[in-house]
């Protein structure tokens, strides 16, 4: 009898969790889709976003993400490669770097917002701009991206490493031609984590990229991201809920789309390099 009760309890909590998720998702999908239209995607917002669309906001979101990825991908790969292949695995120095990266992972996003505001916007004089926001996000996603790529690189079959070096290939060539392509799945995972975090981020952007909802003319302009837009619509604009839900739907779709692109992009890069794993 008691055994049955326990089983029941386990199933009940699992169902409860599933039900809550479905509740949130279905609300976002139903309410979001009902307000969504082609013009919503293509128009400028009007009446504080109650009507009109989100075109400039989509552009700003993508620009901010582009800046963040443009900075964090090369830097992140460089650090990951250094940690996995250019330094002794157990060196004190590398461990200190790992420790600081792990600590950075835990820093709350609002604190990145404070830092980005003080450093990029004011100290470096970049102001409230897409660049400030993108750089702030780059700092935020770098640690996770590095650690994911590093663990992927370390997991690559060591026989390949030894084989390549025994052929007189340089470390650099070994990493570039063999290890990085072989670690591609981990790099994709890191990229997806980074894109997910950056696209979803709100708190770090309010005081760095700002909330101007006009079409940005350059990356030095302030630009409102989708997540900030959703926040603004639901908190500061009465009657903005419909547009907020539609934006939320677009945001989730955007994250899924970007992940697919990341996957496809890396696959394309792999083509002609790696035949099989």
């Amino acid at each position: 009898m008691k055994e049955r009760g326990f089983t029941l309890l386990i199933w009940a909590s699992a169902l409860l969790v599933a039900a809550m998720l479905l509740w949130v998702l279905s609300d976002v999908f139903i309410k979001g889709l009902s307000h969504l239209s082609w013009s919503f995607l293509m128009d400028e917002p009007s009446d504080s976003g109650r009507s009109g669309g989100i075109a400039p906001i989509l552009i700003s979101t993508l620009l901010i993400l582009l800046v963040a990825l443009f900075v964090s991908i090369p830097l992140g790969l460089a650090v990951a490669v250094w940690l996995s292949d250019f330094t002794e695995q157990r060196s004190e120095f590398a461990n200190i770097i790992r420790l600081t990266l792990d600590a950075l992972t835990g820093v709350p996003s609002i604190v990145y917002g404070l830092f980005g505001n003080a450093f990029f916007s004011i100290f470096l004089g970049l102001g409230f701009s897409i660049v400030s926001g993108g750089l702030t996000l780059a700092c935020m996603i770098l640690p996770v991206f590095i650690r994911t790529c590093e663990s992927g690189l370390s997991a690559v079959n060591n026989d390949w490493r030894k084989g390549a070096l025994a052929l007189g290939l340089s470390r650099s060539a070994t990493v570039w031609h063999i290890l990085l392509p072989a670690a591609a799945p981990a790099i994709v995972t890191g990229l997806i984590l980074g894109i997910g975090r950056a696209t979803a981020e709100t708190a770090a952007l309010i005081f760095t990229s700002g909330y101007v909802d006009r079409m940005p003319e350059s990356v030095m302009d302030s630009g409102r991201s989708l997540a900030v837009h959703i926040y603004d619509l639901s908190m500061n604009v009465t009657g903005g809920d419909d547009a907020a839900y539609a934006s939320a739907f677009v945001l989730i779709t955007l994250i899924i789309l970007l992940n697919t692109f990341a996957q496809a992009g890396v696959n394309r890069w792999l083509k002609g390099r790696l035949v099989a794993l």
Partner: peptide
Amino acid sequence: RRRIGMIFQKPNPFP
């Protein structure tokens, strides 16, 4: 290493 090559116990062709 080019002049002195090495073959390993487990075949390790690159992927």
